[in-house]
């Protein structure tokens, strides 16, 4: 009975408390690069989910037979293999999306979230907690990307997930779709998260 709450915490910590994007500031490249539109953010989130969970399963299963000295190389090759799979799948089934994401799908290989979780968690824990941890982090990463994508798409094109929201009278705010919009939106969101976290902690103390 004692184990179950642990597993649930392994899952939920990625959603808010240790959210990879807003709290740990990991995996910034895809976060900034592909969130010009909400759908792209969602796709990137799902691709990272696939790679993180698959790598987590493999690493957790082989963690005892991999010598410590070569563990980083092993992690990296495992990650690169699953990223190749995800990339080929996207290119075959969703060529337009694959072209829009460009080199940012292969760049998942060096996404620090994935290597970081293997090193910090999966390589020290059995399969089940590792799976929950990987899923929690993935969901945390995906929702952060979708939120960022929705805000930027709404301001840049007046739409969310391609559905027009603000109508035709809306004057597109193009810079939100461009790099400056990405940096500034994420900066302000991180500030907002800090404020909310502070309030939560203050309430916890009372």
């Amino acid at each position: 009975m004692k184990r179950n709450p642990g597993i649930i915490v392994d899952f939920t910590k990625g959603l808010w408390q240790d959210n990879p994007v807003f709290r740990q500031l990991l995996g910034m490249c895809p976060t900034l690069a592909v969130t010009g539109k909400a759908l792209q953010g969602l796709t990137m989130g799902l691709a990272v989910t696939f790679v993180l969970v698959s790598t987590g399963i493999v690493i957790s299963l082989i963690r005892k037979i991999v010598p410590r000295q070569v563990r980083i190389a092993t992690f990296t090759v495992t990650i690169a293999t699953f990223v190749t799979l995800a990339d080929r799948f996207l290119a075959a089934r969703f060529p337009a999306m694959s072209a829009a994401l460009g080199p940012y799908v292969p760049l998942i290989v060096v996404n620090c979230i994935i290597l970081g979780r293997q090193e910090a968690f999966t390589s020290k824990n059995p399969l089940l907690p590792s799976l929950f941890d990987a899923f929690g982090m993935s969901v945390g990463f995906t929702w952060a990307l979708v939120v960022l994508g929705c805000i930027r798409e709404l301001l840049a094109y007046g739409s969310i997930f391609g559905q027009s929201v603000l109508g035709t009278s809306f004057e597109p705010w193009v810079v939100m779709a461009l790099p400056p919009g990405a940096f500034i939106t994420l900066g302000l969101l991180i500030g907002l998260m800090n404020v909310i976290q502070k309030k939560k902690e203050a309430r916890g103390k009372e």
Binding site: L178, F183, G187, G191
Partner: peptide
């Protein structure tokens, strides 16, 4: 991080 990202936005 927050202010650094905002400055990066202005630089961009």
């Amino acid at each position: 991080a927050g202010i650094t990202l905002i400055i990066a936005g202005l630089l961009a």
